[in-house]
Simulated assay, not measured.
Amino acid sequence: MTDASRVGLALAYNCAQVLYPEGLSGASVTGRQVVLRRGWLLPSDLFAAQNIRNNIDFVTVTMAPRKMPEWAEPLGRPWRVQQKVESTVGVVVADGTVEIVFSGTFTPAGVVAVWLDDMPHGGAPSAAYAVTAQDTPATVAAALAAALTDGVASGVTVRVPGRVLNGHAGGYGQSVRVTRRQAQLYRVSIWTADATARETLASVLDTALAEQSWISTLDGREAQLRFQSVDDVDTMQNEALYRRDYFYELVFDTLQVQWASEMLCGIGNLSGEGGAAMSFGELAPGGANQTVTAALDAMQAVVAAQAAATAYPGLGVDQFGTVVAAA
């Protein structure tokens, strides 16, 4: 997911890549030091030793308060499967026990469920576990056994003494829907004490952003970039401070993301002859087990961080909004 603040940060990262083509450790396109920030200038930028008047230029990215056109999200806000992860984990059920099996050639992934199969339908205790890349068959077996009353893990095998255990493994997927589509206006401001430096910075930034219709956002998606206007702000020339504002409209989606596993456990009723109800299936794992959706959401957080690192490698931001080299 993304929001207006993080889209602005993505725009700041984009500007940093333009002005520092070799990374922040290299030279800027002007040869001067350029500080990029998601947010306004700080008092220290004007009055501290390292400031605009000491041949340091600043580029800030802020949201501009202007009425923007409304963009309608898809009618009905339909859910769509955006990503699906196939299971590389399996189970072998034999003699009332469940053995966890990993493929030797793939990264472990999937969701494993086990349940007692010798109780009346509709009441069978069960457990589920979302497998991570760091897991082994033994750790999965141990986690499942711990979630079952009287469960025992013997290496890669799960059992409940005196009971019949069954199991199944499946993949999981990410479903996404657009809850809001919006347009937000952003101001990219150049601040410098050198009028010629302003022209150079402006030319480089304007040319580079003019070539881009889309920029990568920090959740692995994209936002549409549209130029709106440009304005020189020379009211501070008496203080030897030159500024130029570029305005860009960015159109992006606010998303609702839901991870879910394939059908592993379930319960239902059928109407038999004479209206008699017939139940089937097993209860889904309860609160005592690992929360599978929470585990999958945690995986998504890792995926999102990897997406940001891929789109803007080597870039991070400090507590003041300044773009810095990632640790």
Rank of each mutant, 00 (worst) to 15 (best):
S25F: 06
D117G: 14
G104P: 01
L11C: 04
A146E: 06
I100H: 12
A309G: 13
L75P: 05
V34P: 04
R177Q: 12
V18W: 07
Y13M: 08
T322P: 09
P313T: 09
V101Y: 05
G287V: 08
V35C: 14
R198D: 06
T97R: 11
T136Q: 09
V35S: 07
V233I: 11
V156N: 14
G266V: 05
P78E: 14
A311N: 01
G31A: 12
E239V: 07
G171T: 13
A141M: 00
P65N: 11
A183R: 15
Q83C: 00
G104H: 08
A260H: 10
N166R: 09
N238C: 01
R163G: 12
Y248S: 09
A127M: 04
V35Q: 13
S28K: 01
S189Y: 04
R180D: 15
S261Y: 02
Q256K: 07
T196C: 02
G173I: 00
L283Q: 09
V92G: 05
Y172M: 02
A210Q: 13
V317K: 01
T192C: 11
M236C: 09
V302F: 05
V111I: 13
E211I: 04
G151N: 02
N269G: 04
A301R: 07
G90K: 06
M263H: 06
E199C: 01
A153L: 06
P285F: 08
R177L: 02
T107C: 05
G171C: 13
F47D: 12
P313A: 08
S203V: 04
V114L: 11
A288K: 06
E262I: 02
G275S: 10
P43Q: 11
P69C: 11
R53T: 03
T105L: 13
Y246T: 00
F252R: 01
A27N: 10
G220H: 00
T97Q: 15
V164Q: 11
A10F: 00
G274S: 05
N238G: 15
P125F: 07
V7W: 00
L41W: 02
L9N: 03
A193C: 08
V111L: 12
N269E: 12
D318M: 12
T136K: 08
E273R: 03
T149W: 04
L315P: 02
R187P: 00
T60P: 04
S103M: 10
P137K: 04
A294V: 06
G173L: 10
T310R: 11
G173F: 08
V111E: 12
A147D: 09
F320N: 15
S126V: 04
T60C: 09
V251F: 06
G155Y: 05
T105Q: 13
L205D: 11
R66C: 04
S87D: 06
A308E: 11
G162P: 05
V302H: 07
V85A: 02
P161H: 08
A138W: 01
A240F: 11
V61I: 15
P108W: 06
W79P: 03
F320C: 11
M119N: 10
A64W: 07
L250M: 13
F252H: 08
V85D: 09
D57P: 03
V34Y: 02
V230C: 05
W259Q: 14
L209M: 10
G155H: 04
D194E: 14
P74S: 14
D95F: 10
T88I: 02
A169V: 01
T62I: 09
C265A: 15
A327H: 12
V81A: 14
T207C: 04
G104F: 06
A48T: 08
V18F: 01
P43N: 07
R53E: 10
Y186Q: 01
R6F: 03
